[in-house]
Design a protein around this nucleic acid. Sequence first.
DNA 1: TTGTGACTTACAGTCCGTC
DNA 2: TGACGGACTGTAAGTCACA
Lengths: 81, 81
Amino acid sequence: MDGAAIVAWNLRRLRVPRGLSQEALAVDAGLDRSYIGRLERAVENPTVQTLDKLAATLSVRLIDLVMEPGAMRNAFIPMLK
Amino acid sequence: MDGAAIVAWNLRRLRVPRGLSQEALAVDAGLDRSYIGRLERAVENPTVQTLDKLAATLSVRLIDLVMEPGAMRNAFIPMLK
DNA sequence: TTGTGACTTACAGTCCGTC
DNA sequence: TGACGGACTGTAAGTCACA
């Protein structure tokens, strides 16, 4: 699983539960609607600057966009410790 | 601290202790020496594909390159548990 | 061993669409 | 609402010479 695929997976994981459409996310992040779609299909190779914008818009940290599926298992969750 | 600065910081943090020069890392990752230097000075805005190459070369995960200074505090370090 | 400027080529990202 | 395409522009990728 390469970086683009990981980002794609996280983008969907974070966007959908927030009830945001691709277009709404695009507008909020100052990006293009069709570009967001391509990111989620893992056909684009974003820069860290783009990831920064998306992380800020989704109110998450940069690392939350490059976290691999399954990594949640080892996540540090205070209330569980 | 933006994404480029975070990557720059992590690159130095991971490269130096391994006793690698910028040039050695560049060769191993299939990148140019001067480009590595610019990444470490945060004057470049790398794509995830570039980060992928570097992570593979350094034998770390993608998230280890976008981890913020201070986040090590919460890192999962088995020998400390 | 690294920083830096100059340069060309490849592609990130935009904007217009259709289905 | 999202998948997908074409044409375009800005900038990252990649190389080299020199301090």
